[in-house]
Amino acid sequence: MILRIDSSSAIPPYEQIRGQLATMIATGLLPAGQRLPSIRQLAADLGLAGGTVGRAFRELEQGGFIASRGRHGTFVSDHVPARRPDRERALLEAAGVFATQAVQAGVDPRRLLDRALKSIGSNAALDQTS
């Protein structure tokens, strides 16, 4: 599971982290009880300040998505609020947010989606699953 931060985006990095993690948790891609990397590790890997990742984690914890267990680390919460059993529905919502932002920025969302799929090499995987 990969977290991606676009430094050229108008969305602040902490919000990008929060949004991606929230979507992964809500869709079940990150299951309950899954241990997350430490703030220090994520900050180092993404080249961000610890406070930026810390803010995203704090907001996720306040939202009930994750729970800190002291020195044992941070885990996906067992009781995620409004967990949706239907992954497609949650992903559709996330795609809606993406499409809205793209249109507002004057960019064709389909073209961006094509580029994103190519960059992660998922086209082949999608062909296989369809």
């Binding site: 599971m1 990969i2 991606r4 931060i5 430094s7 992964m24 990397p37 590790q41 680390g73």
Partner: peptide
Amino acid sequence: PRPPATVRAAALAPR
């Protein structure tokens, strides 16, 4: 130094 990149990625696996 870290190579310059607009999009940075990290694996969500604790080390």
